[in-house]
């Protein structure tokens, strides 16, 4: 759990929201004040708490995890279901209206506000995302879709079919609009 949290922080150090002059402990402090980072840390804790096997202490840890999850949901509006498996370097950019239930997300994923990743009635599994996916604001990824690696999902798009590697998709429903995903968002990897 701590390696994952460290990788999340390291990814945010590289790219998001810090100036060059902030060094040392100030970077950790500034990033911990962001609601997106707090939600990611709470998700890592909830995910770890799911696997704790000790009988009584495990129950207490799970209750604490549940309460933290509810607090983040109410304060930040970010609801990351612990069922999801999320890789390293997970960055949530803003807050509010984020709902995340995915089968598997790879490394270096970036989420913006208003993103819904979920399953629907009749889909076999929740979405599967590859590495280095940038999900723009307001994007909705629904159903049993498989999204490849190095993909940029533009803002306000609706992804309901599979997306190959190395492309940019946009629109409702999402269509591939570019076969090069050399967008600056994908450079910052852990």
């Amino acid at each position: 759990m701590f390696e994952m949290i460290k990788s999340d922080f390291e990814r945010k150090f590289k790219a998001f929201g810090l100036r060059a002059e902030d060094q040392g402990a100030l970077r950790y402090v500034k990033l911990s004040m962001e609601l997106g980072t707090q939600a990611a840390v709470v998700y890592r804790f909830c995910r770890w708490a799911r696997g704790v096997k000790i009988p009584v202490i495990g129950l207490i840890i799970r209750i604490i995890a549940r309460m933290l999850h509810l607090m983040v949901m109410v304060v930040a509006g970010i609801n990351i279901q612990p069922y999801s498996t999320i890789g390293r370097g997970f960055a949530i950019h803003n807050f509010s209206c984020i709902f995340l239930l995915a089968e598997k997300i790879g490394d270096n994923c970036t989420l913006n506000q208003g993103v819904t990743i979920g399953n629907v009635r009749g889909s076999k599994h929740p979405p599967i995302l590859g590495d280095n996916v940038y999900v723009g604001a307001g994007a909705k990824i629904l159903g049993d879709v498989v999204i490849g690696s190095n993909v940029v999902i533009a803002a306000n798009s609706l992804v309901i079919s599979n997306v190959p590697d190395n492309c940019t998709v946009a629109g409702v429903p999402a269509r591939v609009i570019s076969r090069g995903a050399d967008s600056p968002y994908l450079q910052y990897t852990v």
């Binding site: 009635r121 629904l142 429903p173």
Partner: peptide, 15 residues
């Protein structure tokens, strides 16, 4: 725009 003349609300996600 109208994309389908069905409205199967139980599976309503995309179209």
């Amino acid at each position: 725009r109208i994309v389908s003349r069905h409205a199967v609300s139980d599976r309503a996600y995309g179209m």
